[in-house]
Design a protein around this nucleic acid. Structure first.
Lengths: 149, 149
DNA sequence: TCTTTAATGATAATGATTACTATTTCCAAA
DNA sequence: TTTGGAAATAGTAATCATTATCATTAAAGA
């Protein structure tokens, strides 16, 4: 189950350490482990998944720490969240072609009608081995209300 | 708090009833209420939000019913989920410009590198009153593994 | 080494969702 | 119309993801 730490990952970890120092973040073994696990995979893991991997060689790390740390990293731009709207399912009865814009602060979602964004053609190469059903574009920014507060 | 039910919404509800019958779904007052609430808003509400609205005039509706019903509607294509990956936060240490493809069955997420999708330019009109930070495209389909099972 | 401040671990609390089951209701067929 | 049975609902318990709290520990600069 142990992974090969490639040169590329080592390099990313070093960059991470440098950036942490610049940002005034303390460099702890937990943080290094968490970053390392995330930098070593392209699986876009959940918090739980990262926690379980680290547990193998760092058995007394706390799940809370992993949650807290990933959130910290994300806020500082050291990593990113794949799914900004992970909190609760959000539904839409509007089946017309359209996209969405989400406010990263209040999580409000608004419709975006822009024909140039609903008619992209996706190359077969891009799809790989997937049988495509569609795509959705999620713009993100800060809404007027959240900027004025 | 009561909403004006526009002609358009009435029409959508009628279509919904017809499609339900076609699909062999029983048409219950709960289902009509749930569909109506969703068709009456562009706020992309959560299950809880829909539940609370209906409670005002249908006090003994069950939250469970709202959860179950939205899921049913979604599976049959009567409505859609804005955020397919609503289950748990998923992280990425890869900050290079790229997009993602998600398998709608197993929720696996893979990277998509396609320059034509990372260099879209979004018109100011599209952004409305948002201060844009970026966008992400989520392709969706069924992966090879899930197709063969 | 010392100090102080941020980070961690353990646990409890909360929030979202799903599982379970007895009861009810839709609706097709008599 | 009534009725039988499958499907849907309500209510509750259980589970899963996440956040809050707080006492203890450890990083890193003086």
């Amino acid at each position: 189950m142990s992974e090969i730490i490639t040169e590329m990952v080592k390099e990313k970890i070093n960059e991470f350490i440098d950036r942490s120092k610049d940002l005034g973040l303390k460099v702890t073994p937990q943080r290094i482990a968490i970053y390392k696990e995330l930098a070593s995979t392209d699986q876009h893991p959940s918090t739980e998944t990262i926690y379980k991997k680290i547990k193998d060689y760092y058995p007394n790390i706390s799940l809370t720490t992993v949650y807290r740390t990933l959130e910290t990293f994300e806020k500082l731009g050291l990593i990113s969240v794949v799914n900004v709207l992970y909190n609760a399912a959000r539904y839409d009865a509007n089946l017309d072609p359209h996209n969405h814009i989400v406010c990263t602060v209040c999580k409000k979602v608004e419709d975006v009608y822009d024909a140039s964004l609903t008619t992209l053609d996706i190359s077969d190469k891009t799809l790989g081995e997937y049988q495509i059903k569609g795509y959705s574009i999620l713009l993100n920014g800060v809404c007027k209300d959240c900027r004025s507060n």
